[in-house]
Amino acid sequence: MKKMLSGVAVAALGVAFVTEAAATEWNASVWGKRRAFTEHVEKLAELVSEKTDGEFTINVSYGGLSKPKENLDGIEIGAFEMAQFCAGYHRDKNRAITVLELPFLGVNNLDEEVAVSHAVYDHPAVKDEMAQWNARIIMTSPMPQYNIVGTGEPRDQLADFDGMRVRATGGLGQAFEAVGGVPTSVPATEAYNAMESGVVDTVAFAQHAHLSFGTINDADWWTANLNPGTVNCPVVVNIDAYEALPAEHREVLNSSIDEAIDHYLANYGGLLEQWDSVLDEKGVQKVMIDDAVIEEFRTTAADPIREQWIADMSAQGLPGQDLYDLVQTTLKQQRGGN
């Protein structure tokens, strides 16, 4: 009897070990709080768990694993398996994808942002550069064109940007600098305090971030149509962790990405539809910049910054012109052009 029980116990223990070995648990490092910007990460975690009956789980951590500017470093050393980061936080570490942060790039909507981002992510130069950090990009975090909020009188003339201290990263910061602005790249989580304390005069964000980080609560006005560009924030996975996934779990992860992006786009679309009512509720003036002012801004900032970026990338051995051309070709294809 003892022998029979022992045999059953051993068999049960063996099954337990097999079950444990088959289970996969990942940690994903993001920041702030759950918001439109993180909905695809949340949806991806939901999908992989559902499709594997809980055998593959992704725990999404809001700041508990790393600071925003250190997420790529955490991926490199395997501190967590998945992370979100923004290219403007450390342009020297992700030079190739900064093509997506060039000002006045011509992207009109979130669908186009997804298309151009994923096309660039698939470029061999991008994959090689990300591999240096043991990172594989799996999806973008598409955001609409940034616009600024501020206090006092609206800054609706180009001369008003001269000396303006603006929270803006990456190519956006360069664009404002080109017209006399003074950009600073404080993390999104510190933007409200920077604005409230007077460290910055204005903050450039997409709509969801103005809401999530409270800058809209301290604002008197918001520029509705300045649209100088946006930032690019990929979601990456640790290559070693990705390659170590059981084949069925890797397939579930890969096949869930488009669903997660679709969920993100639908959710963000709802936020954009409600934006005017948010402005009314908070008493924020919607400022329309004159077309001539926008064109002057574009002429001053877009062409010189783009040409300098291409030259800088080429000097560093990266295919700058090829990456920029890829963006423009993808936009034409997305719009059904030839």
Rank of each mutant, 00 (worst) to 15 (best):
G229H: 02
T300W: 00
E259C: 04
S6H: 14
A175P: 13
E248D: 15
F80R: 03
E295C: 14
G106M: 09
D322M: 06
H263K: 12
T299P: 14
T140K: 02
A131F: 06
S197V: 09
V252R: 11
A45H: 03
A311F: 05
K127L: 11
S314R: 07
I75V: 10
R95W: 01
E50A: 06
Q132V: 05
A209T: 04
Q132S: 08
N108M: 04
Q157Y: 09
M164C: 11
L318F: 03
A9G: 11
A302I: 00
M139S: 04
P246I: 01
K93N: 10
V8A: 12
P144L: 04
A11Q: 05
G229T: 02
G32Y: 00
A209Y: 00
A244I: 05
L172Y: 01
T184W: 04
N254L: 10
T38P: 07
S256M: 07
W133Q: 13
P183R: 06
T184D: 08
N238V: 08
Q285S: 15
E295A: 15
L172M: 11
D201M: 14
F297M: 15
E39Y: 11
I305W: 06
A159D: 15
Y192W: 09
A168S: 11
N147H: 05
D201I: 11
M139F: 07
E251M: 02
G173M: 03
A36L: 05
L245Y: 04
V199D: 14
P228C: 08
G336E: 11
L110T: 13
A168Q: 01
K51C: 04
